[in-house]
């Protein structure tokens, strides 16, 4: 085969590969929604994080505003310290509420931020003081059964 023809085919091949990669990145993956470049860090303490994992979404009013960066266990206070990276475009008041929610009944867990009314805003390195733990299904069920038993008595 002629060299020129060969080059064209290989060119098409490479472009197809790039197009497929582009499709994977934008249509399949979260590269577009993940394009948070500049972030600031805030911390939140939880008694129980349930099934929260690093890289889980941080949402406010359903919009992804950041991601969980890391989760460590504080051996002095005996609670989980979650480091959250929030997009610098989004600012939240100091008294913002952090909840751990579950997407659907069995879905992944994420952090929901609910803005408070403070005039000062969260800054890099701040701690979110108001948090609510993950709902643990077993706890919920045992509570329910306990209540049921109490009612019957």
């Amino acid at each position: 085969m002629e060299r020129a023809k060969l080059d064209i085919w290989v060119g098409i091949f490479v472009i197809l590969g790039i197009a497929a990669m582009f499709g994977l990145a934008t249509k399949v993956g979260n590269l577009t929604s993940n394009s948070i470049k500049e972030t600031y860090q805030v911390f939140a303490n939880f008694e129980n994080i349930g099934g929260l994992k690093p890289r889980a979404a941080v949402k406010a009013a359903g919009v992804v505003v950041g991601r969980v960066d890391s989760i460590v266990f504080d051996t002095e206070a005996y609670h989980a310290v979650v480091k959250i990276k929030v997009d610098t475009r989004y600012i939240f008041p100091k008294d913002t509420f952090a909840n751990i929610y579950t997407a659907g009944l069995l879905g992944e867990q994420y952090i929901g931020l609910e803005a408070g009314g403070d005039l000062e805003n969260l800054e890099d390195g701040d701690l979110i003081t108001q948090t609510q733990d993950a709902v643990v299904l077993e706890k919920l069920i045992s509570q329910f059964l306990y209540n049921k038993a109490a009612e019957e008595d």
């Binding site: 990669m21 994977l24 990145a25 249509k27 399949v28 993956g29 979260n30 590269l31 929604s33 993940n34 890289r55 979404a57 992944e108």
Partner: peptide, 19 residues
């Protein structure tokens, strides 16, 4: 179909690791 996919397929973890 697409949005669930985008929410759960991570570019740097899944796609890059596959590559």
């Amino acid at each position: 179909f697409w949005s669930q996919m985008q929410a759960n397929v991570d570019f740097s973890n899944d796609i890059v690791d596959g590559a």
